[in-house]
């Protein structure tokens, strides 16, 4: 192996690692606030990537329709839970969030999709379509289980993952798609060409980290999220609406997922089930970060990306085996270092 290959592998590993870092951050965020181990995180990546790829071809992405379905399901659940005690305020909020919003986004997509606007508009539209899904998924699957154990929530996540992956198959089909890069071309760093897309990826990861830092440290909602993470009941007692913080966490996670999808769509072909594996690699990083530390998760994600890049060079057939076996010593180490309390 010469230094050119080494440099290529490092660059490749860092690019993928940055994506894993984004996902790892989202996973830590969701776990900290809601105790949900969010296995379907990867599905948002696939949804985002496939939505962008379809917008690229000027077609109407299936996710827009899916968004309507999700919104409708959330609305019906709201109606059901309000059946004994109908309140006009709650009802109108539910109509606004669950019906008006998705219809507006659907309408915007219907108008904008055939117009073939520039890449930035398509990226933003993709995020507008995917991000609200986080809220609906939270409302439909997790909010009724807010007080369940981490284990029950984890099994729920697996159920949500199955359903979302299956819906991805229905709305996108089994064909893989690839999007055009946000901005084409590349520039040379010494002898190494760096594609512009890689710069977008690094930039977004750094922006997300800074954004999360500012959000958690400087805003009231961010502090409310942290309070919920530390103590649900305590947060409720001092007036934090934990349903609001839960919903916020899921919207953020879906947004990050969509961004990752937008970023990764031009560099690899995405299938309806690709997101799961990408998300799991974010998991490896999040677990190294103890599902708690943002900086450790981000660093670990870069490490996962590098391991994967070198594994695919030296033993490409065993790439996935190596990456997923990597998690086991980490899990053991985490189990030994985390205090586990008697489950009572």
């Amino acid at each position: 192996m010469d230094s050119t290959i080494l440099a290529f592998l490092v660059q490749d590993g860092l690019t993928n690692g940055a994506i894993y870092a984004l996902l790892g951050l989202a996973l830590v965020l969701v776990f900290a606030v809601t105790r949900v181990i969010f296995i379907p995180q990867g599905e948002f990546v696939a949804y985002g990537a496939l939505t962008l790829a379809l917008l690229d071809t000027g077609r109407m992405p299936g996710t827009a329709l899916l968004l309507l379905c999700f919104g409708l399901a959330a609305f019906l659940l709201d109606l059901w839970s309000m059946r004994h005690r109908p309140r006009i305020g709650e009802f109108s909020r539910s109509v606004l969030v669950n019906l008006v919003l998705p219809v507006a986004i659907y309408g915007a997509t219907w108008i904008l999709a055939p117009m073939q606007l520039n890449a930035a508009v398509k990226a933003l539209l993709t995020m507008a379509i995917v991000a609200p899904m986080g809220l609906y998924v939270y409302r439909i699957a997790y909010r009724p289980l807010a007080d369940a154990s981490v284990l029950v929530l984890l099994i729920t996540s697996v159920g949500v993952h199955l359903a979302m992956m299956g819906l991805g198959l229905v709305f996108f089909g089994a064909e893989g798609l690839r999007a055009r890069p946000l901005s084409g071309g590349s520039f040379m760093l010494g002898f190494l060409p760096i594609p512009a897309q890689a710069l977008w990826i690094y930039g977004c990861t750094i922006a997300a980290m800074v954004g999360l830092y500012v959000f958690f440290e400087k805003t009231l909602l961010g502090k409310a999220l942290r309070a919920t993470a530390v103590n649900r009941l305590g947060a409720r007692l001092v007036g934090v609406r934990t349903q609001l913080t839960g919903g916020t966490a899921f919207i953020l996670a879906a947004t990050i997922g969509a961004v990752s999808g937008v970023l990764i769509a031009p560099i690899t072909t995405i299938y309806y089930d690709t997101g799961f594996l990408i998300g799991l690699k974010g998991f490896v990083a999040a677990i190294i970060g103890g599902l708690a530390s943002f900086p450790v998760t981000a660093l670990a994600a870069l490490g996962v990306g590098l391991v994967e890049a070198f594994a695919s060079f030296f033993a490409s057939n065993f790439k996935e085996i190596i990456v997923f076996t990597l998690i086991i010593p980490v899990l053991i180490w985490r189990s030994l270092t985390t205090d586990h309390h008697e489950e009572d």
């Binding site: 439909i140 369940a148 099994i155 697996v158 159920g159 359903a163 299956g166």
Partner: peptide
């Protein structure tokens, strides 16, 4: 496609 139904079933049971 049955995985959609299975996923929903799993969540509903829980």
């Amino acid at each position: 496609y049955e995985m959609i139904v299975f996923g929903i079933l799993l969540v509903a049971i829980l």
